[in-house]
Design a protein around this nucleic acid. Structure first.
Lengths: 105, 105
DNA sequence: CGACTAAGAAGATCTTAGCTA
DNA sequence: TAGCTAAGATCTTCTTAGTCG
């Protein structure tokens, strides 16, 4: 699947999960009311690619880490949970995850 | 730091690590010889944003997973190593990483 | 050769004006 | 209201033609 299509699908998935309309999401990320719903629809339909600055804002409003929009399906849950770890616990946890990775299985 | 700037920096970092010139990388990802070095330079300088299809090809040629270009600095190593795990070992490993994450520290 | 830049050409998104359920 | 679409206006990237070390 093309990356652009994947981002489009993830965007729609996250918006529906958040219970927002196309227009509500668009306004929430700073798009003017007059064009909000069309633009978000174009992103979700894969008709136009959102610029990076827009993807950043969408991620923030939708409560997902940036990588969640482009990672493979089997990594979504891991990256989402990792993003919820507190800054305090993060360094040690990342170390432990790496250690597990390096130890093989 | 802006996402676009981050991607630009990561691209340069990966290209230098691979020991490729601007032109060599551009040609490797399918850009015509006449414009290859200028376009890659524009991406690395943050002058222009590469389209998603280009980022995909750059990631492949440079041997990094897609998420490596946009993740935070402290996640780079983890995501790079995860991308090297074989498809066979992947499901179980992802399960174990998640289990570790959920168990707290 | 390798890295870099400006500016017009070419191609993308954004806005407008609609439509359908 | 919510979702969707076409097409011209607008803004971006891409190409060309160069410079600099």
């Amino acid at each position: 699947m093309k990356l652009e299509t994947k981002i489009a699908n993830r965007l729609k998935e996250a918006r529906l999960e958040a219970g927002l309309s196309l227009e509500a999401l668009g306004v929430a990320v700073g798009i003017e009311e007059a064009t909000a719903k069309v633009r978000i629809h174009q992103y979700e339909a894969g008709k136009h690619a959102p610029p990076f600055s827009m993807i950043e804002r969408l991620a923030e409003v939708l409560g997902k880490p940036l990588v969640w929009f482009i990672c493979s399906e089997d990594e979504k849950s891991l990256y989402l949970n990792l993003s919820k770890v507190s800054a305090k616990d993060r360094p040690q946890l990342l170390d432990e995850l790496e250690a597990l990775l390096k130890s093989g299985l």
